[in-house]
Design a protein around this nucleic acid. Sequence first.
DNA 1: GATACGAATATTTTCGATGATTCATATATT
DNA 2: AATATATGAATCATCGAAAATATTCGTATC
Lengths: 242, 242
Amino acid sequence: MNASDKTLNDTKNLSEQAHERIRRDILNGELFPGDKLQIETVSDRYGIGIAPVREALNRLSSEGLVARKSQRGFFVAEISMDSLEELVKTRIWLETLALRKSIENGDEDWEEELVLSYHRLARTHRRMPAEAGRELSEEWELRHKEFHMLLLDRCGSSWLLGFCSKMMDQAVRYRSLSMNVHPSLLRREGAAAEHEALLKACIDRNAELACQLLESHYKTTLEGLRGVIGKGAAEARTKLAD
Amino acid sequence: MNASDKTLNDTKNLSEQAHERIRRDILNGELFPGDKLQIETVSDRYGIGIAPVREALNRLSSEGLVARKSQRGFFVAEISMDSLEELVKTRIWLETLALRKSIENGDEDWEEELVLSYHRLARTHRRMPAEAGRELSEEWELRHKEFHMLLLDRCGSSWLLGFCSKMMDQAVRYRSLSMNVHPSLLRREGAAAEHEALLKACIDRNAELACQLLESHYKTTLEGLRGVIGKGAAEARTKLAD
DNA sequence: GATACGAATATTTTCGATGATTCATATATT
DNA sequence: AATATATGAATCATCGAAAATATTCGTATC
């Protein structure tokens, strides 16, 4: 339950630490799409032996963040504008579905958790100036995902929740990568207001409105990313040289 | 594209072979929910070293077929009536969604593929007497999944297709396990007719009917399994002694 | 000058063995 | 007799090195 459990990577065994850290670096856009994940290089980078690293990469490959070419090693999963559009489309389908069910089932506890989660998200947002540190940005992403997942939390299907979570991770990845290329472009101001409207619609049990808001929220984000992605991958490759 | 590519497990490396074979044994119900997957035992069973087996188990754990308890090894994922009900519910949500989209987008090629796939399924079914061999039963499961996936194939989202595929695998698992406990009970005759009706509705582009048929198809299957599952897990454990 | 072959190199994949952790049994103490 | 502690066996996690496989580069041939 405690949020700090995941950021502190002390107690776990090495293969879990490797999994967590590589995953984080992919989601934060520090590892670029298509990059080769050479076992020994990765092993050195994190100071973890090659066996745990292999295990982590194997798991990440099943989670869709890493591609695994037989006998040719591991690569950071590719991205493309096409697959981003497919991703957003699918997110809208599944999340509006989940949101409707969640609004149907949600009780007063749910409302309270939502209010709290929104408050935390807004607070983090307020503290975030133009060029915030990475930790704050990471914290925002965490809160953001928490809020959006909580919206769906009462949908009644852990399967559906899991699918939505997976797709949210992918979306985070696209955002991070775009931000690395065009640092100024993103983190638009409108987002905060949209979250608030979404919160209100849920508390009012206005499923129709809530779904509309969610849909336009994602479509707006998509438009913001359009055009950045194509160049993004190529540009990122050069930046790797550092 | 060729279906036999997956059944022949020759060319691949050992870790992929292990993954395929363990996966198959879990889906076919030869490995029972909760069973410990002791590395060395598994390694002996398949005649594959422990390193590839570990890799396979790691990937299977991310795919939801294997549970991984830190520092305590791997176990075949548990099942329960509750999670089966959740599974069926979610399948109906997502597959009717995908089916609607697929019927919207499907062209004449799609129709032809459907007819062909249905024919193959029906033929396999016809050749299957009361107590068919395992190979034939496996072939039926393959065709069955192929047909159901093809129904959704034109939905326009590889994400959604992947989710549905994952859930179908789980459903196969529940069926296999139930059949191991009550061999006579399952493989009801009605299924063939239901598939045919489904095919017809799709070709007629009657989305509403098709979704209704799909829903009742799954609900009927669920009812057939009800009551078998609870005892199933316990009874299966004893059978392991062989 | 371009292409194909083959040796040398780099990487992945796999194995066998060594530390680390958990679980079970037995002994000791109240 | 019952709980607690300690010891031993089993198993997991990790390491380092060998085998299998791709990749690169140079050389020879057309």
